[in-house]
Amino acid sequence: MDHILVAKDVSKSYGDHQALRNISLEIPENCIYGLLGPNGAGKTTFIRIINQITYQDSGKVLFNGKSLAPEHIALIGYLPEERGLYKSMKVGDQALYLAQLKGLSKSEAKKRLKYWFDRLDIGDWWGKKIQELSKGMAQKIQFIVTILHEPKLLIFDEPFSGFDPINANIIKDEILQLKEKGTSIIFSTHRMESVEELCEYIALIHNSEKILDGKLSDIKKSYKNNIFNVGLQVDRDAQLFLDDLKTQFQILSSQFYQQECQLDFKVQLPSGNTTEILTQLSKQANINRFEETIPTANDIFIQTVNKRDNGR
């Protein structure tokens, strides 16, 4: 598989503070790659290195197999977390200016801007000043400016912040369409539900180090611990029934709802083999729920970070 971006042992420090320590990442082409981590972990520093805003102290960054160089700037689109526009400049002039700075010709930039303004239904904003627009409106313009030069690699730092749910959805759909067209996307966020929804790959950065990376589905698989949620209709003495089960299986927690005769419990099956317990249960009770618990990205995030912190 081809990689749009490869980082090898990238380190960076600001004075005494080490912002990145030996980060190695491989970002495959044409995927959405989630860059996760708590605040201050070093995500922004890493992104700034990709954008050549700062430079690594040691290590290498390869873009499309070649060492990162100034000509790559036109192939990268970056929507920073701290973003804004000139307040007293007109929307159209501003978008044109930023597009031209990315290397588009004026006429081409104008054509594409018109297309995007129509597409996002904001055509009548062209002559307005930013200070007359709401924050969400300005974010839309910012999004357009980021993607206008059709970069091969897009980097979004918290792209949905400042959007209402409807507009957030519009932007999400646009991001997915860009991916369909072949763009590779790095996605830095704390919003785990959007990670779940969008990202195929993730990397978790914590305290300047990468502590986890890979395909999200693989990571989830490796994080599942064969715990099953079980729900039963029991018409006998539930406590007795449970005690009986406990002698054979590893029951983690349980709850009995007297009125509905409903017994819920969590069970860990070390081998992952469900045949035995299902056979036994089906003989004695009515099973209305039996499911494997799959850890969410959020769970993995918290679990990994905590494990790391406690391990120190």
Partner: peptide, 18 residues
């Protein structure tokens, strides 16, 4: 200062050198 407070600065220096 205006570019800093309006936070456009990072957008711009991802295209040009400071």
């Amino acid at each position: 200062i205006e570019e800093k407070t309006s936070r456009i600065i990072e957008v711009i220096i991802s295209s040009v050198k400071p």
